[in-house]
Amino acid sequence: MIPLFEKAHQLHLTDTEEEILKYFESNLPSSVYTNLNDLSASLYTSNATIVRFCQKLGLKGYNEFKYQVRKELKQLHPQNFRTDDLVHHSLALFKDNLDQIDEKELEEIAGLLTSDRPIYIYGSNLSSLAAKYLQTVLNTLDYPCILVEWRRLLNGLVHEINSDAVLFIITAHGDARRYLSVFRKAKARGTITILLTCEKDSPLIPYSTFALCTNDRNEEYRHVDINPRLGIFTIVQILIELAARIKQNSQDGGDTFGSLS
């Protein structure tokens, strides 16, 4: 237990003060962020009562009390919830992902996406959002492309599409059972395939024309996929920027829109 609370328990407290203490103990860690007005409202008491309680503990007021609890909490659980760390960690992952990209390859892919070839973009589950994002923005830039969100449709499609089509497939898990037949067929027919995945050992890679691999981690929480695919979104964004630049260069001088630098 936090030393400050231990100290409080040894004091002679009124019923209301007991309640304040109980509230703090049972609602950690969020209770240390409650403001005075919210607290007094939810405990049906007055601000003055709460301040008096803090003063009984030898502190100047409510804010010092919160500060003290926070400090003691940190000392007690150094491994505990620290948002700064988490935010810095995800920023570090984001930067690592940028460092490992191959600019030349991405430029080549952007060239394909903005060519006159038919473009199919596939993604299912959470990857479908990345696919939809790429498709919507490319359409906005006047490079029409088709979004495919159903796996069976993709399976059928690969037998039918023109051989000059480009198949852009986003799959975080790079699952062979699901997609190997698609990639094999596409390769046999000479269709260009671009694979965007975060599984660097995906068996699909040897069958794809271009393979892009990000550093997202495939993790689960209670058996649900919680891979946020941020690296995938980053690659998609870079492709969009490159496509926008191609668009800008192709426009005849005069016309300008937003800076892309």
Binding site: L141, D142, L230, T234, Q237, I240, E241, K247, F257, G258
Partner: peptide, 18 residues
């Protein structure tokens, strides 16, 4: 940075995803 292509905007959403 806000951007558009003749009325259709394509401002980067990456910071929001982040």
């Amino acid at each position: 940075n806000q951007r558009e292509n003749r009325g259709a905007e394509f401002t980067s959403r990456l910071p929001v995803f982040y």
